Amino acid sequence: MSKESMKAYWKENLGYLAILLAIWFLVSYVFGILLVDQLNSIKMGGFKLGFWFAQQGSMYVFVVLIFVYVKLMNKLDKKYGVDE
Rank of each mutant, 00 (worst) to 15 (best):
Y60W: 13
M1K: 08
I19N: 01
K78G: 00
S5P: 01
Q56P: 00
A18R: 02
N40M: 03
I33K: 12
M73E: 15
A18S: 10
M73V: 13
G50F: 01
M73T: 15
S28W: 08
D83E: 14
F47D: 09
F53A: 01
L35M: 14
N74S: 04
G15H: 01
G45T: 13
M73A: 12
Q38A: 13
L20S: 05
K48S: 06
S2K: 04
V70H: 06
L21G: 05
Y16M: 04
G46A: 02
K75G: 07
E4N: 15
V63K: 06
D83I: 00
V36M: 11
L65A: 09
G32Q: 09
S2G: 11
I42D: 04
I66A: 03
M1P: 09
L76T: 09
A22Q: 03
F31S: 01
L17R: 03
K79A: 11
K7S: 05
M1Q: 10
F67R: 04
Q56I: 15
V68H: 03
N13W: 08
L35G: 07
S41D: 12
L49W: 07
M1L: 10
L49N: 06
F51V: 11
V68P: 03
I42L: 11
I42M: 12
I23R: 05
L65D: 09
K71H: 14
L76V: 03
F53I: 02
L65P: 07
S58V: 06
A22Y: 06
M6T: 12
K48R: 12
V82D: 04
L14E: 07
